[in-house]
Design a protein around this nucleic acid. Structure first.
Lengths: 203, 203
DNA sequence: AATCCCGTAACTCTTTTGGGTGACCGTCGT
DNA sequence: ACGACGGTCACCCAAAAGAGTTACGGGATT
């Protein structure tokens, strides 16, 4: 019984990952967890063959969860997932014993290939890689500016106010807004903010 | 060492509660948890004298957490918190052994009085009550309609679309929107959606 | 009985938003 | 060297949003 545990605090990402992993040949069961605590709690009763876990999670972070998991079970195979470029977290996690990481921009095929390989070879370690985006259904990658603008929106600021805050013209803010709407598939700023929360891009 | 554990999945509500409880005379320590799992995990090592817990939480719900907590420790004193009128949940929780409940509209004074009393008398059970709002810093109470409108916004619908969906005129939707903005302290719909997420009013 | 809140709706007026388009400049990777 | 992308800015234009105000009927509370 080959089972994989997917852990991500964002419901949207979690579901997308679950569905993607479920299509991997040989995988019979995919369970999900929303945070590190849940992973640890579940690990006692129900060990999966592979864990895919987001680096950045509220509460117990991904790195700390890796540490605790491996101290409890040195054989656990863990692959970290990362949305943004928080390579620090990834590096720490790999140093702590994670088998490697996948950028969330990885294609669905890439993800499946990686999971397949990790399941087939218990000693396998991932060579860092990243590919195109959106195919996997993972969180769209927003640029730093776009996230700043999205955060401004989530604080109720108008485009003009965001511009003043970031020393940009209102027109530039509007450009960033339009681009991030497109990436998120949002129809307006309220929708964008909601998707930002659901994807875990803002808090 | 009198300590109280506050459990609510919404960060804003959690902080508001923590601060309110911390002002109660005799309370020396207030710890927080974001969900039922965390409460149970923490309970093993660190028992508080009183637990304030939201009824509605993701994952392990409040009611189920009460059950497990009491089966592990029949002496645990738990007061449920409820945002909306989900009296079903409250009734179940009280039936399961919670000492009573507080509506989140309770005033700060009300909350403090209740906590004081619950701490003073181990056998005490709360008589159901509810008071004015916003004093405690808890989530503003939105009406059913207002929440429906807010949800529509979070799905990227325009006022006109929301109106069509709910069989209301666009003007009526705008009225609900204006009222919920006022309650939440939101400057626009994007802000309202963000606050809705932070308060745990929408997902 | 008086009052408050909710739901419904309309009207006006100003501000903001969002789409479309074009443009210039760096940087990075090929 | 070329192209893609990100960041910057501008202009036009139609649609939407938000503020203010008024109003009426129905519950619930006092």
């Amino acid at each position: 019984m080959t089972s994989v545990l997917v852990c991500d605090d964002s419901p949207l990402a979690r579901e997308a990952l679950r569905r993607a992993v479920a299509t991997v040949p040989g995988v019979e069961r995919v369970t999900t967890a929303a945070n590190g605590e849940e992973v640890l709690r579940r690990w006692g009763a129900d060990r999966s063959d592979l864990i895919l876990m987001d680096v950045r999670m509220p509460g117990l972070g991904g790195v700390e969860t890796v540490r605790r998991l491996l101290s409890a079970d040195p054989g656990a195979r863990i692959i970290m997932l990362t949305v943004s470029e928080d390579l620090d977290g990834v590096a720490l996690a790999v140093a702590a014993g994670a088998r490697g990481y996948l950028h969330k921009d990885a294609s669905r095929a890439e993800l499946r290939a990686t999971v397949t390989q990790a399941l087939a070879d218990p000693t396998w370690r991932l060579a860092p890689r990243r590919l195109r985006s959106t195919e996997m259904g993972a969180a769209p990658t927003l640029t730093a500016r776009e996230i700043q603008v999205l955060e401004g929106m989530s604080h109720g600021r108008s485009n003009a106010e965001i511009g003043r805050e970031l020393f940009l013209s209102e027109d530039t803010v509007k450009t960033h807004a339009r681009r991030l709407f497109k990436k998120l598939g949002a129809s307006d700023r309220a929708h964008a903010v909601a998707l930002g929360f659901r994807w875990g891009l803002v808090r």
